[in-house]
């Protein structure tokens, strides 16, 4: 498995808590401070409720693969030919159904990702930063 190297851009600090969580081995997502409901990806404003704010909460490490793709030609800006193939999964935590977190599929070359597969958070060191990764359970 290859590992794409493309650090987060951080135009703002909005997503820094997500990466601080990964570095601590936790999956942290955003929720509505008033209703407690998950709000993911973090919107700049809560739909229909401009006064609401976001809080970060820990989500379940375990969940299922909503979908996936095995990337054989990376379209990231720059030359990433040495970093393929890798598989991206869209992960749904057990306690945040419908919230999908993109991450690398962490498994041996003989294991393929599949929709509905049970996986667990397994952060991946990508150069000098840590990104989301998910490994099959069992």
């Amino acid at each position: 498995m290859g590992i794409p190297i493309h650090p987060p851009r951080f135009d703002s600090d909005l997503l820094r808590p997500f990466y601080e969580g990964l570095a601590a081995g936790e999956l942290r997502l955003t929720a509505d401070s008033e209703t407690g409901q998950w709000a993911w990806y973090p919107p700049e404003m809560m739909p229909g409720r401009p006064a609401a704010t976001l809080v970060w909460r820990r989500a379940s490490d375990e969940g299922t693969v909503y979908s996936f793709t095995r990337v054989e030609r990376s379209l990231l800006p720059g030359d990433h030919r040495a970093e393929v193939p890798f598989t991206v999964v869209l992960f749904e935590p057990d306690d945040a159904p419908g919230c999908r977190v993109p991450g690398l599929f962490v498994a041996g070359d003989d294991v393929s990702a599949a929709c509905g597969m049970r996986v667990r958070l397994s952060p991946v060191q990508a150069g000098d930063h840590v990104v989301a990764g998910f490994a099959p359970i069992g």
């Binding site: 135009d11 979908s67 793709t69 379209l75 970093e83 977190v101 930063h129």
Partner: peptide
Amino acid sequence: PLKADLEMPVGYFGQPSYFATM
């Protein structure tokens, strides 16, 4: 910005990948 911070760091980038996931 959301793609730059959440998707591109794991290589999820470009229409072929988005639609392949579909």
